[in-house]
Simulated assay, not measured.
Amino acid sequence: MANSSQWFNPPKQYSDGPLLRFTTAAHTDFWQHTHYHFYRDNGHFYYWQSTAEQLSLLVEVQVNANSKFDQAGIMLRKDAHNWLKISAEWLSKDQAALGSVNTQNGKSDWASQSIKPATNWTLKVEISQQDAVIFALLGEEWQQLRVLDISHIRDKDEICIGIYGCSPDGPGCEVRVQRVEFHESVL
């Protein structure tokens, strides 16, 4: 991983070279208020900071899930009240959810769809100034999941982008990052 990376809420167990691996702690999550009426900002986030106007991050993650809602994927973050997470979430041996949570001013929304359970997922976000396009690789094809404004996440043109994982209801799970492609450019 890049030397300029850093952790927000580092897990107790991790290895960041040559591939990132970590074990999520129990009862960790990123969520703010809406529907569930709880606040959590204690998930694990391994990230880079960028001022590039255009950037992309592709991540293939392997989640060795133990409990319902174990998850890992991509996160863009400004602070506890303004962030975006894109992930696959394990629900049971027969069900998983692919989705994104956009949190703005302390309110989270969740866009999701059911998918077949797997241990590996490939996710991608492409950012152009204040807009983000989110994709997931389903089979052999990229599927666009969402397009959204992320101006609430950029802080003075800087953005924190990286890999996150959490275990809201269980004892924790192992996350292995199989592939990372991070690109920055100026429009």
Rank of each mutant, 00 (worst) to 15 (best):
S50D: 07
F45Y: 09
S114Q: 11
V175C: 02
S15H: 13
V180L: 15
A80I: 05
H152F: 13
S5G: 12
A2V: 12
K85D: 00
Q32C: 10
L76F: 02
H33P: 06
A26M: 06
N64D: 10
I159Y: 08
N102K: 06
Y164P: 05
I153W: 08
I163P: 03
T51Q: 15
G162H: 04
L137A: 04
W110S: 02
N105T: 13
A65R: 01
T24P: 00
D79L: 11
M75W: 12
D41N: 15
W7M: 11
P117Q: 01
N102C: 13
H37S: 10
I134D: 02
A111E: 12
L20V: 00
R146E: 02
G73P: 00
W90R: 00
I74W: 03
I150L: 03
W31S: 10
F8H: 15
V186M: 14
I86Q: 00
V63Y: 01
D94M: 00
I153Y: 09
L76E: 05
Y39S: 13
N3T: 11
D94A: 02
L98E: 05
E126R: 12
K93D: 08
N82F: 03
H183Y: 11
E89F: 01
W121P: 01
H33Q: 14
N9G: 12
S67N: 12
C173K: 01
E141S: 11
D157E: 15
T122A: 08
L84N: 05
E60D: 08
D109L: 06
G170Q: 06
A96W: 02
W83D: 00
I74D: 00
E141V: 03
P18V: 08
E181F: 09
T51E: 15
F8A: 13
K78P: 09
E174V: 09
G99Y: 03
T103P: 04
G165W: 05
E53S: 10
I161N: 01
L76M: 13
W48V: 12
W31V: 09
W7H: 12
Y39P: 06
Q144K: 13
D109I: 05
W142P: 04
I74A: 01
H35I: 12
Q32T: 09
F30W: 12
F69N: 02
E53H: 11
H37V: 07
H44F: 08
A52Y: 04
W90D: 01
K12N: 14
F8S: 14
S15R: 13
I115C: 02
A72S: 12
A25G: 11
Q71A: 06
H152W: 05
G43N: 02
K156Q: 15
L145Y: 01
N3D: 14
H35V: 10
I159P: 07
H44L: 07
G73A: 03
Q178G: 04
F182T: 00
D79E: 10
V147R: 15
D94G: 02
P171W: 05
C160F: 13
L58M: 11
A80F: 10
V125F: 02
Q130T: 14
A111S: 15
P11Q: 09
D169E: 14
A111Q: 14
E141H: 06
F30D: 04
A118R: 00
I161R: 01
F182G: 00
K116P: 04
L84T: 04
